[in-house]
Every structure is written in structure tokens, then in C-alpha cells.
Amino acid sequence: MKKSKEHSQGIIIEFDSGVIPPPFSHYYRLALDWRERTLAADFEIHYTNREDLTEEEILDEGFTTEDDFSFKGELDYVWKKVLSQEFEKIKWSGRPPEEGGLSISALIDGKAGTAKSPENQEAWQMLAQDVIQAIFETAKKEAPLTVNYRLVDNDKIQDCAITMKFSSRQAIFQSKDESKEINWEYAVQLLKMVFTPDYNYELAKENPSNKRGSYIECGDGYWHELGKGVVNIDTSFDAVDKIKSGFENLLS
């Protein structure tokens, strides 16, 4: 297996959501080829078993009737380094791919090797989702995500934002005084915290408050006050405080 890793010229990632019900159930195939000093991507995703659902049932779950998508094109070469490094240190589960889950095969001379299941399924699923988001941005299917934050303390208002550009794997921090690229992993972990608590949209506002407090807007136009409209789901884990400290560290 070591030899195929050393000579791999790309990878193919396949994912099957398994037994989860529609409209969530889906399958995707993501082929990434870096033989020619470019990163060529061939991607398709298909949502399965929707035949017995009405359009209303699909829309009620936040989907559309046209969620299937395919893409062939080039991605920013920055992703090649990330993917190849992760593939070089991969550990295999030793189990054959089964229904449900993710499998990976190496591309060697344009041909796919044997598909195997990585030991760390969750990490590879998350990495694949990052690449898929890069594809969506490259194809102009989705815009980069921007999360806005406001801190009001002692009548001083500080506004800032983080924009995640998956297409180029850049995290851009913007405030009144500066715009700079920040550490990608720091931004990813901070945004994971952002989407961890519970958001009460009945308390949300279309404009941020000028009253003392911390406020966040997650890209949908609605502002929430941390600690009131945004509350921890798990009382043993203070995600709200981590959001505050994460943004305020960037503001300091």
C-alpha cells in the first residue's frame, strides 16, 4: 500500500449516506486528479429515494427538487497539497467498503485502485465536504460564507467579519481598521463553534443592536444576541463563550 501512496496522482472519494431517509439520503463521487500540475475535479452528487415524496415534503426539509449537481473543472491547486498530505498519512480500517460511509481509492496512471475505507471516517468526510464547498464556489453555485460579529462595550462598537473562501482555502478577517488573511484552521474551528449553539429566530433582528452585548449574523441577514437569542445546547460545553472569545481575540 505504501508504494501506491507514493505514486498516486490523485484520489477518488465515494460516499453513500446509507440508511438515512429521503430527502437526506444521497450518494456522491469526487475524483481529484493532479497529474498535470493542475487539480482537475470531477464531481457528481445524487439525492436518492425521493420518488415517494411530494415537492412540499422536500422543500419543508430545506431542500429543492433540483439538488443533484455535477461539475468538471479545475480547483485551486492549494487543495492538492492538503489532500495529498492527508492521503500520505491515511490509515485504513481493514474493512471493505460497506453500504453507508466513505471510501477512497488512489488514481495511478489515470486508473482507480482498490477502494478502501479510511479509519478516520469523520475527518475524511469533513475534508471532502470542504472540497465540495470549494467546487460550489468555483462553479458559482454558492457564494463564500461571511459571518458578521458586533461587540458593544462601554458605548464602543466594534464590527468585524470572517469570510470563508473555500475556493482558494482562505479565511479573510475584516474590521474597521484592517483586512487580513487569518489561519484557516483557526477560522474553521471558530465557525464550528458558531453553528454549535441553538439560535432562536423569534428573537432575531434584521439590524444589529447598539446596546451593550455581543451579536452575530451567520450569513442569512438575521442578527442574534449571544447569551439571549443564542444559547448553549449542552450545559457542559460553553460554545457561546468560545464564540465570543474567538472573535474578540481577533479584534484585540
Rank of each mutant, 00 (worst) to 15 (best):
I20E: 13
K3R: 13
D52W: 12
L191D: 06
T138H: 07
G73H: 09
A161R: 03
V19N: 12
S168Y: 04
I45F: 09
A41G: 03
W34N: 02
S209E: 07
S4G: 05
Y77P: 02
T54G: 15
H46K: 14
P23A: 04
A187L: 00
F63D: 05
E99A: 12
Q129M: 12
Q170P: 00
G10W: 09
G100L: 03
S17T: 07
F173Q: 04
F237N: 09
V82S: 03
I58R: 08
G110F: 04
C218D: 06
L59A: 08
L127F: 03
P22Q: 13
D52R: 13
I157E: 15
E99S: 14
E44L: 11
K244Q: 13
Y222E: 11
S93H: 01
W184T: 00
E44H: 09
K81V: 03
S4F: 12
A139Q: 06
S245T: 15
A187Q: 02
Q129P: 02
S209F: 00
A134C: 07
P23V: 04
L127R: 02
K2I: 15
P208T: 10
K111F: 08
I45N: 05
K111A: 14
K3N: 11
I162M: 02
E248A: 07
H7C: 11
L190V: 08
F237T: 08
F173H: 00
I233F: 14
V152E: 10
I132Y: 04
I108S: 08
N210H: 08
T235A: 13
K242T: 09
N207D: 13
I108L: 11
N183Y: 01
Y215W: 14
V152T: 07
K80Q: 10
W223Q: 01
L250K: 01
N183D: 12
E185D: 12
L53G: 05
V188P: 00
T163L: 02
C160M: 04
L145Q: 08
R169M: 05
L127N: 07
K176E: 15
V152L: 05
K141F: 05
S103R: 15
T38C: 01
R150L: 01
F173G: 02
V19H: 11
W92Y: 10
Q158K: 13
N200F: 15
Y27K: 12
T54W: 13
A41E: 05
L107F: 03
E99Y: 15
R37L: 08
A171V: 00
D155M: 13
T138S: 09
N183W: 01
R29H: 04
K242F: 09
M193T: 12
S252D: 13
E88P: 01
P23T: 06
G94Y: 08
D60W: 06
T54H: 08
R169A: 01
